[in-house]
Simulated assay, not measured.
Amino acid sequence: MSVPGAAAVVLERVTKVYPGGVRALDEVSLTVEREAFVAVVGPSGAGKSTLMQCAAGLDVPTSGRVFVDGVEIGGLDEVWRTEVRRQRVGFVFQAYNLVPSLSVVENITLPLRLAGRVPDRAWLRTLVERVGLAGRLGYRPGELSGGEQQRAAIARALVTRPAVVFADEPTAALDLRTAQDVLGLLRDLVGEFGQTLVMVTHDPAAAARADLALVLADGRIVDAVESPTAVGLAQRLADLEAE
């Protein structure tokens, strides 16, 4: 159950230090409101993936607090963090992460089965029709194009009706036209289904689809750009690379 009035994701002064003293995040604070599409961009090594992993409960911060859907996850053990992820978080990855031996519909409903839940047939039908896979449900991932596989992964991320979906470079493995189609789908899902989406990307054009772009450098948020443009973000990233 969602917590009424709670933001989808909140980070309070989150720091992550890896062995050897590498500081990947340095007191990062942010709030992602519900029904928002937020992109996280920055130079290589800026801390983008670490930010997503900590925000999604895949990793534990060295210090600071993380809330997902109003639930503080930083102090939970792995069993309870896994439970929170299953109930409240969806994931879309660059590599799709579909199970080759399962059909499309089995892949989409896998998070529900892992959580011991029965699929909502009406919601499942809505999802597969919206992502354009109604005629592919019995296929295996290897029988699909890259774009179709990513669409299946998007449906899988949404099937549990999560509070937030985290997308890590969701179009990096796709050709330009297919990438644009997938980005358009993600943008539409925010509006149509009231989904909250946090996308990590190196691509300024992809980030320009978001409502807000957070620019990371050296583990800190150095800029927050509302209604970002590809040209503006590309210039901002170029300036950071030159510093």
Rank of each mutant, 00 (worst) to 15 (best):
P19K: 13
V3I: 15
M52H: 10
T15D: 09
V3G: 00
V17W: 03
Y18S: 05
L51A: 00
K48Y: 04
G57D: 05
A56W: 02
T31Q: 14
V22M: 14
A46K: 01
V17K: 12
E12Q: 14
T31C: 11
V41K: 02
L51Y: 05
A8Y: 07
D26A: 06
T15Q: 13
V22F: 15
D69F: 03
C54H: 01
V71C: 10
F37K: 05
L58Y: 09
D26I: 01
V9H: 08
E72V: 10
A7E: 14
S44M: 09
Q53N: 15
D69G: 15
V10I: 13
V68F: 10
L25R: 04
A24T: 09
C54Y: 02
A24W: 01
A39L: 07
V28S: 00
V40I: 14
A24C: 13
D69C: 09
E27N: 14
A8P: 01
V60T: 14
V17C: 08
G42W: 04
A56G: 15
P4L: 10
V3N: 12
Q53M: 14
S63W: 07
L58G: 04
M52Q: 12
A56M: 05
A8M: 08
A7K: 00
C54A: 13
S63G: 12
A39E: 01
G21V: 08
P19M: 12
R23Q: 15
L58V: 07
V71S: 01
G70D: 08
S63Q: 15
L58Q: 06
A7C: 11
V68N: 02
V32W: 06
E33T: 08
P61I: 05
A6D: 00
C54P: 06
S29F: 04
A46H: 06
V28P: 03
L30G: 09
G70E: 10
E35L: 07
A39Q: 02
V68C: 06
E35M: 14
V14H: 06
R13M: 12
E72F: 08
D59T: 08
L11C: 05
V71K: 12
T62C: 04
G21I: 11
P4H: 13
F37Y: 15
G57M: 07
E27H: 14
V28R: 00
T62H: 05
A56H: 06
D69K: 11
R65E: 12
G5S: 13
R23F: 09
C54K: 02
V9G: 02
R23L: 13
V66Y: 04
P61C: 06
V14N: 03
V3P: 03
A36Y: 00
M52T: 11
G5Q: 04
Q53W: 13
G70C: 05
G47N: 06
V14D: 00
G70F: 02
V60L: 10
K16S: 09
F37H: 04
E72T: 08
S44V: 04
R65C: 04
P4Q: 09
V14A: 04
V9M: 05
V60C: 08
R34D: 11
P43S: 15
T31F: 10
Q53D: 14
E35S: 15
G70Y: 03
V17Y: 11
V14T: 03
V41S: 01
K48V: 01
E35Y: 10
A55C: 07
E72H: 10
A8I: 10
A7M: 02
A46C: 13
A36F: 00
A24M: 09
V14W: 00
G20A: 08
V32L: 12
V10S: 10
T50G: 07
G42M: 09
